[in-house]
């Protein structure tokens, strides 16, 4: 699937989880759709993810967590984005996440959660429908 508009996407792995196969597949998927993907490697703190998202002016942050610490880590990323006035950035998540946590993450502000078995096309289609490139040249919302 080829994207109609070019986005800047950050894919990141917060916390101590070192399983990066999935996130690399996602990164390639976004690249092949024509997006620019910033990859920061494993073991990122929420602070690192948030400051990277701001420095790189991304439209979308994809968080991957397979260790079970998603509730704390994802929420912390959201909290810090808000604190920096950067909560206009869309955040999605993926990984080994129990169904009951999906709702809690969405309540916290994660826009969508993709579980194992989701196809790349599904994720790209969702992105196409839900994420717009920041109107460049405009001042960021505060």
């Amino acid at each position: 699937m080829r994207a109609e508009k070019k986005l800047r996407v950050l894919v990141a792995k917060p916390g101590l989880d070192g399983h990066d196969r999935g996130v690399k597949v996602i990164a390639r998927g976004f690249r092949d759709a024509g997006h620019e993907v910033i990859y920061t490697g494993v073991h990122q703190t929420p602070e690192q993810i948030v400051s990277t998202a701001i420095q790189e002016d991304v439209d979308l942050v994809g968080l991957s967590c397979l260790s079970g610490a998603h509730l704390f880590l994802f929420s912390e990323v959201l909290r810090q984005l808000r604190e920096q006035g950067a909560d206009d950035i869309t955040v999605i998540g993926g990984g080994i996440i129990p169904d009951e946590d999906v709702l809690r993450l969405k309540d916290a502000g994660i826009r969508e959660v993709f579980l194992p078995g989701t196809s790349l096309d599904e994720i790209l289609k969702w992105t196409e429908e839900n994420v717009c490139p920041a109107s460049s040249g405009q001042e960021p919302a505060r």
């Binding site: 690249r31 092949d32 024509g34 620019e36 990859y39 990277t52």
Partner: peptide, 21 residues
């Protein structure tokens, strides 16, 4: 940038993340 898709993976930061905060 990929000449085929126009997409890119920007991975230089991976080595520099200790300074990003």
């Amino acid at each position: 940038t990929s000449p085929l898709t126009g997409g890119a993976i920007l991975g230089d930061r991976v080595r520099m993340q200790q300074h990003c905060t």
